[in-house]
């Protein structure tokens, strides 16, 4: 089976120029990530703030240009496609944003926010776009009269539903959800999460579901990828990851290690040598500073990037 989304050796770096005459330094936000997402599969992407999750998502959506590696969507290489050539594919891949406030244009009515998807892709006639938008609203659990209102008339949860309706309006097969509930009240999080799960199942969506803690992605994800400083630390089917984390970072995120995570995530401008996690790892040993751990499969479908096989044996 070929994957719907296939990412190989993806690197995204931003040049940072301190002054006019200094040589720009590279901020490597994503470093050598391999990731495949099958049709209808939900992959959870987890990591702290600054681990490169959003950059990875934006690269997959081709909102930023990768510096190296390859991204294929349904077999089509989109790594270097220009904007015009991407347009047709965007109908099939969409994104749900983190902030329900800034992700909706305050000057547009809901019908125009959702209708923009139809307008850009020439879906339907201007007349039946209203009906289409109404149907989308119904799918996300909002009444039809919401169409003529402005975003500020809605609560955070309702706004996020509008954002979801916009993302699904074009009939996408693949949706990137960038922390879609982390800006919402806890009481609303579960509702929106359930909605996403329902939609995913009924539409057979493939998803890249981003979260900064493992709790949110557990139920919706088939597989989970743990990212740290732009590198994949561990990949495993979701039930396995929660019960048998094999990487110290995953274990720390789950709160399963004796020592909690110490300090802050290092700056991606000067990542630690060897294993990037070693500075905060309770199990770090001398070779960790020199050996860059490769992602090695420990059991089928479960891989970790850690040289210590003697700890966290499940």
């Amino acid at each position: 089976m070929t994957a719907l989304v296939d990412i190989a050796g993806l690197d995204v770096a931003f040049p940072l120029r301190r002054s006019l005459f200094a040589r720009p330094r590279l901020l490597r936000a994503v470093a050598g990530v391999d990731l495949a997402i099958g049709r209808g599969e939900v992959v959870g992407l987890v990591g702290e703030s600054g681990s490169g999750k959003t950059t990875l998502a934006r690269a997959v959506m081709r909102l930023v240009a990768p510096t190296a590696g390859q991204i294929r969507f349904d077999g089509i290489d989109i790594t270097h496609r220009d904007r015009a050539a991407m347009r047709a594919l965007r109908r099939r891949m969409q994104m749900i944003f983190q902030d329900p406030y800034s992700s909706l244009n305050p000057r547009l009515r809901v019908r125009d926010i959702i209708g923009e998807a139809y307008a850009i892709h020439g879906i339907g006639t201007p007349r039946d776009r209203r009906e289409r938008a109404e149907a989308m609203l119904a799918r996300v659990g909002l009444p039809a009269d919401a169409l003529d209102r402005f975003p500020h008339e809605f609560s955070g949860g309702q706004r996020q539903r509008i954002g979801i309706a916009r993302a699904l309006a074009t009939g996408a097969e693949f949706v990137v959800a960038d922390e879609p509930v982390s800006a919402l009240d806890v009481s609303v999080q579960a509702q929106v999460l359930n909605l996403l799960q329902d939609l995913q199942q009924s539409l057979g969506l493939a998803m890249l579901f981003i979260a900064h803690d493992l709790g949110v992605v557990q139920h919706i994800s088939d597989r989970i990828v743990v990212l740290y400083l732009g590198r994949v630390m561990e990949v495993a089917p979701s039930d396995v990851l929660y019960t048998q984390p094999r990487h110290p970072y995953t274990a720390a995120l789950l709160g399963a290690t004796p020592a909690r995570l110490r300090g802050e995530i290092p700056s991606p401008l000067s990542p630690p040598s060897g294993c990037v996690f070693r500075t905060r790892c309770p199990y770090a040993i001398a070779p960790c500073a020199s050996v860059v751990p490769r992602l090695i499969e420990v059991t089928p479908g479960h891989a970790k990037a850690c040289i210590r096989d003697d700890v966290l044996r499940g």
Binding site: A88, M95, N105
Partner: peptide, 10 residues
Amino acid sequence: QFVEAAEALG
């Protein structure tokens, strides 16, 4: 993000 959303829509 609404600008990014528009770009994501094409």
